[in-house]
Amino acid sequence: MKKIVILFCVLGMTNIVLAEEAKLENDQTKPGKAVGEEITTAKPKKYSQALAQELLKASDDSMYPEYFKSTFTMVTHRKNKKDLKYTYLMHGKGSNTALMEITEPAREKGKKILLTKDNLWMYIPAVSRPIRLSRKQSFMGSAFSNEDLMNSTMADDYAPEIIDKKGELYLLSMKGKRRDVAYAKIEMWIHGKTKIPTAATYYGLSGKAIKKMEFSEIRKLAGKMRPAKMLMIDLLEAGASTEVLMKTLVKLKTVPDYMFDQTQLGR
């Protein structure tokens, strides 16, 4: 579940950042330029490492309660193609376990997607066994990859550093601690007071930006201020984006383990 939170975090870019990114997007069409290198202008370290860690941890924590139930819609836009719209009912537990069930459209109803620590499974009612999905694959035709949903808590995987501040917004540059993290670098704007991410850009190993995420519609969900809307922009395809809108989020006391057992998906 936290994975979805992470997605929200990555999407929330401020207007300032958007302006900068528009420039960067133009640059990205030029060969050999690593967009990421341009926005991370080397500056003397004037922000403490402790603050960076605190912001990242708070951002991680701000996304979802430990146990929860949520409904959200996911709309994918692609140029010259009909929008893909799904509504999900999601149960989550901890930072990397969630079960999503499609409730709309009717023809897709009953399909389930199970996220566990290392795997992602899809259950289709007409097929007896759940299908294991590849990490790289697009999630239900959206701008999210399956791996985006599988990201664990960012504080575990990334070393943060504050590299800029504009108003109340801090720009956190997070470099992967290991070679096996999904993105070599993530840059995230986080509001200093609310500790809620507003935007993020994901970079590949080469330093080129792959995706951007914007967070908006901050409102009270499950007793806490959280971003209700996330927009993932696919930089590989002009006009391709996926919008996730959280409709409800309810904190639960617990969620039974069997819900996250892939052998029980058909029940």
Partner: peptide, 12 residues
Amino acid sequence: SQTIHKANNLVD
């Protein structure tokens, strides 16, 4: 694509 370590990568 992704590297051998499953890290995303993008190049011109």
